[in-house]
């Protein structure tokens, strides 16, 4: 009687302490806590197991858990850092941190490059291993870019002639593939983005600036839940 019981904070597997995540991302501890609110909401939308499954991710993006989308699939794959088919809380925060307005632009450019490297055909060349040069991720612009343009047109029920698609792809290739080897390496990609900054607009989410307003969390602040 008169006893004041603190409810034990029951965190699901995959949970990581906000203080640790805040130390390696641009987020504050409060913002990571707010992200946990968002994460909980997303991760219990279909299966309440503390993990975001592909269907839950699709449901959040499209209001439809069955909607297939090439680009959403790639985002999910990149967020799923452990490649185990689900997004854990730590993976969610670390991946979203690249989209923070204060995240380094170089990280945004690199993330987008990996996103568009559809089949992850990155290769390490012997000379580069020997000289410890940067790993060059090469991608076949013609094939992958055309595939992505077609996916986008299909998504929006737009029809363009094959010639028009080729024209858009070739024009982009002429500008981006300065070495004229049919591929874009990370160096060419950085140059191309510099000339076309609108390409990385999608890598900044202004919502991440107002997280604590949208998803207020009092758990860490008070150390007590459900009071």
């Amino acid at each position: 009687m008169g006893c004041f019981c603190l409810k034990k904070l029951g965190h699901k597997p995959g949970y990581e302490a906000p203080i640790n995540l805040a130390s390696e991302t641009p987020f504050t501890v409060n913002e990571v806590e707010a992200l946990y609110d968002l994460f909980k909401k997303l991760s219990r939308s279909i299966i309440d197991d503390g993990l975001i499954h592909k269907e839950e991710f699709q449901l959040a993006l499209f209001k439809n858990s069955n909607k297939q989308n090439l680009f959403a699939d790639r985002i999910f794959e990149l967020f799923d850092i452990k490649h185990n088919g689900v997004i854990e809380f730590g993976e969610f925060v670390r991946s979203l941190s690249v989209f923070h307005p204060n995240a380094p632009e170089a990280d945004k450019i690199a993330f987008l490059f990996r996103l568009y490297d559809l089949r992850q055909t990155g290769c390490i060349e012997a000379e580069e291993i020997l000289t410890f040069h940067l790993i060059f991720l090469l991608y076949d612009l013609n094939r992958k870019l055309k595939e992505m343009v077609k996916a986008l047109l299909c998504e929006n029920n737009m029809s363009l002639s094959e010639d028009m698609v080729d024209l858009i792809v070739e024009k982009t290739m002429m500008e981006a593939d300065t070495k004229r080897d049919g591929k874009i390496d990370d160096e060419e990609w950085k140059e191309f983005v510099k000339k076309n900054p609108s390409i990385i607009k999608i890598m900044t989410l202004s919502d991440l600036k107002e997280l604590t307003l949208a998803f207020p969390s009092f758990v860490m602040n008070s150390g007590v839940s459900d009071l």
């Binding site: 993006l61 499209f62 959403a72 979203l96 343009v149 363009l160 792809v169 390409i199 989410l205």
Partner: peptide, 26 residues
């Protein structure tokens, strides 16, 4: 309508699958 001047990556970036703002909708 796809403007002829639009580069392929600008076009791709309009995909709904790349619009993560939807995650933050209440």
């Amino acid at each position: 309508v796809v403007p002829a001047t639009m580069n392929a990556f600008e076009l791709i970036s309009t995909s709904q699958g790349l619009n993560l703002s939807s995650l933050f909708e209440k």
